[in-house]
Amino acid sequence: MARYIIYGAGAIGSILGAGLYRTGQDVVLVGRGRHVEAIRRDGLQLRAQGQLRQIKINAVDDLAKLKPKVEDRLVLTVKAQHTADAARTLVSAYLPTTPIVALQNAIRNEEILANRFQCVYGGLVEFSGNFLEPGLVEHTRNNLVAIGKFPQGFDSVADALAADLEKAGFQVERSENVMDIKWWKLVLNTNNALLALLGCWLQKGQSDPEIYSLMADVMEESLGVLRRAGIHPQAPAEFPPLDLAIQKLRAGETSCDYDLPPEERTYPSTWQDLQLKRGSTEVEFLNGEIERLGKEHGVLTPLNSLLLRLVSAMALNRELPGKYSPQEIKSLFEEAKL
């Protein structure tokens, strides 16, 4: 039986690991010191669907505390800005033939891993979680995961992982072209920066006309760059294509009940990084990816470039999310387009 090493077990990694563990899989979470300390003392506290579960799962704060096994499967859930360091750490302990899957935002993680590992798999995470405090995470919405071999294809290792995730209660999409699905997610993620600047959670953003119009503008710019670059993002089976998603967002058709308790709101990872004053975010690998592609293909990206600059400065200065109002961002967008 495979042993799953969840490397970078914050909210998403802990939710994945807990699901696998509860079905009888051998799982080890590798995470930050205080989170691991709380898990080892009290178990992982997982809040989902109105219930709080205590899960006595194995956790370590240092990969050196584990003895590698031939049957290990590496699951990378760190933020994109930490992928290169994680790859160096993992390859120092594991053979290059060890299977590794990148269940992360952004689309360069697999490329980085492929420089050190021979069996790399791409993964889409289309569910949300909040890190409430060390030892306590919440699964707030959705449960979709997509899996495929990098750069293309699907094999028995991917199928075994997909089957294990399905047993754990996740909806799994098996894909021969998983990177096309990850490009789809990248366009959605370009709004992470916007919501962080506004101090806003997803449900409110999708329901407030002042905000969802800005979100639609950002997605439209991002999709235009991908099309000029010849990239064809593919939505998972149950989601609309991006052009229709933008149309629905702009028309207010994604509105929902957003008056939720704070712990049930879906905050993007960029918001969480600013809130925790971590000093860095994934913005360089999200909006920065669009900016780089735009420069390469002669497309201006004023909105993504502005979001990249503003969030990078806030992270560097350890500023909290919510620095800007929708009206201020709208004015800055209009200036950036001139």
Rank of each mutant, 00 (worst) to 15 (best):
E71N: 00
T98C: 01
D72T: 01
E111S: 02
V75W: 11
T97Y: 02
A93F: 11
H82P: 01
R73W: 10
P134N: 05
R88A: 08
A102G: 07
S128V: 09
T77E: 09
V91Q: 05
A114M: 12
N115Q: 12
L113Y: 08
A114C: 10
T98F: 00
T77F: 07
K79A: 05
A86T: 07
V91E: 09
E111W: 03
V125S: 06
A80K: 08
D85K: 10
S92N: 02
V120I: 14
D85H: 12
A87M: 12
L90S: 07
P68A: 00
P96H: 01
V78H: 08
N105F: 14
A87P: 11
H82M: 12
R88H: 14
E71K: 00
H82S: 15
R73L: 10
V78A: 12
P96Y: 02
E110N: 05
L132Q: 08
P96E: 02
A84Q: 13
P96V: 02
L124N: 03
D85V: 15
G123L: 11
G123S: 11
V120P: 13
T83E: 09
P68I: 01
Y94L: 00
Q118H: 05
K69A: 03
Y121T: 07
L95C: 14
L124H: 04
D85E: 15
L90D: 04
A106P: 13
L124R: 03
V70T: 08
E111K: 06
H82Y: 15
R88G: 12
N105A: 06
K69W: 05
L74K: 02
G123F: 11
A84G: 07
T89C: 07
K67M: 09
L136F: 09
A84S: 14
V70P: 15
E71C: 00
A80F: 03
H82K: 15
T97R: 08
V91I: 15
L103S: 02
N109W: 10
A87Y: 08
